[in-house]
Design a binder for these strands. Structure first.
Lengths: 215, 215
DNA sequence: GTATATTCGGAGCGGTAGTTCCGGTTGATA
DNA sequence: TATCAACCGGAACTACCGCTCCGAATATAC
């Protein structure tokens, strides 16, 4: 249950630190006002642009949208991937929290299914989250790895609980379920064939229901 | 029913033309022996490399594997995409033929499901096919478009037939079914999480079975 | 054997994208 | 207000990739 506290670097938490007030460590002088303003603008721009275009968007686009030069951008984030992680990790945390909440629901089956639907909504709305989930497991590097494992754990709990009460089949893995949902979103993301992930996820949920073994 | 005859350019069919013997048109002198040998080596290398690495592989890799320079490669194929199409289109044609065969099967439901399983096998084995199917509908350009539409039609027939006899639900589209299968393969293609598409496609098939309306 | 058109090969061009560097600017401090 | 460290901006550097170009090599025809 280490999903609550997150590893954030000194530089990045400086925003909330000086925004929320003086924290314990006084040895780091607060960030300059213009620097902090720019940092927030960069984060806003990055969130919007990454959500709309995904990870493949050039970094200049983020800089332009934020009204900032690329140099400024690299002052705040050592690399493009670091910036990407800063955005994605909060999205993952939201999902983790959602999964933990769902665990308290009465109907284990419906708890799993509604979470999967929400996962589909998020993944098809935020293109960067979709990208992150699609390659999760490839490059296990980055701070996202921990949070992603938390998400995996949360989904596994939902899945196990639903399987234990016979709501879904018990021979599917967490990776397979997430793979199906993320895959559906990936297909839905393609323009030109007018497909929404909703019905595809319905099909997946129905498929999970079928063949449920021991009630 | 135009899935049998395929549009091939003059240059590309020259291989089979001069290999099989003199054809009708005598105004085109047969390709030089070394050129033909290289063309075949390029096609072999391209198929292997694209299957293993997908479309994103640099063209130098194909050239190196074929033991030729990139200049030679571009002599035979005007662009990288053309080479890619030359490989993918035959794969698509195989799938179209498979879909047409499946239409003659006794059990419409099982015909659809076994085809989807085979589609999954192909897509997860040949990485280039997966790439092509994943972006099908985005760039409707290229000669693949026609063949891809043939494939869509074939799948639609299987789907309609299965829905008509009540084997599967009747509210899903062809794009959704292919999206689910291709999405599953996409997830399975990620190394590190050890997932095969088989069981995911099983889940999809079960999901299609459920909610079948009018038998 | 010679002539010639065809083909080969890979250095190089142009464009893209991530990252660095440094002169100019500006907010914080006294 | 004056001083200075921190910060800004974008030109430039590096790496990569698709593609072109042209002198060298060679298969084919006579």
């Amino acid at each position: 249950m280490s999903s609550g506290d997150v590893q954030t670097s000194e530089a990045e938490r400086a925003v909330t630190a000086s925004a929320g007030g003086p924290d314990g460590g006084a040895h780091v002088r607060p960030m300059r006002a213009d620097a902090m303003k720019n940092r927030l603008r960069i984060l806003d721009a990055a969130e919007a642009v990454f959500a709309a275009e995904g990870l493949s968007v050039p970094i200049d686009v983020v800089a332009e949208r934020a009204g900032v030069g690329v140099g400024t951008l690299y002052r705040h984030f050592p690399t493009k991937e670091a910036m990407f992680e800063a955005i994605v990790i909060t999205r993952l945390q939201e999902l983790v929290a959602m999964a933990n909440e769902a665990e308290a629901a009465d109907d284990p089956g419906e708890a799993l299914f509604s979470f999967l639907r929400e996962l589909g909504n998020q993944a098809s709305t935020k293109h960067d989250l979709l990208d992150a989930l699609a390659v999760a497991g490839v490059d296990i590097k980055s701070r996202c790895a921990t949070t992603f494992e938390d998400l995996q754990t949360g989904i596994r709990r939902l899945l196990d609980r639903a399987a234990a009460c016979g709501a879904v089949r018990d021979d599917v893995t967490t990776a397979e379920v997430t793979g199906l949902v993320v895959g559906a979103c990936h297909a839905a993301g393609q323009a030109g064939l007018g497909v929404t992930p909703d019905r595809m996820i319905d099909v997946v949920c129905d498929g999970l229901r079928r063949g449920a073994g021991h009630p």
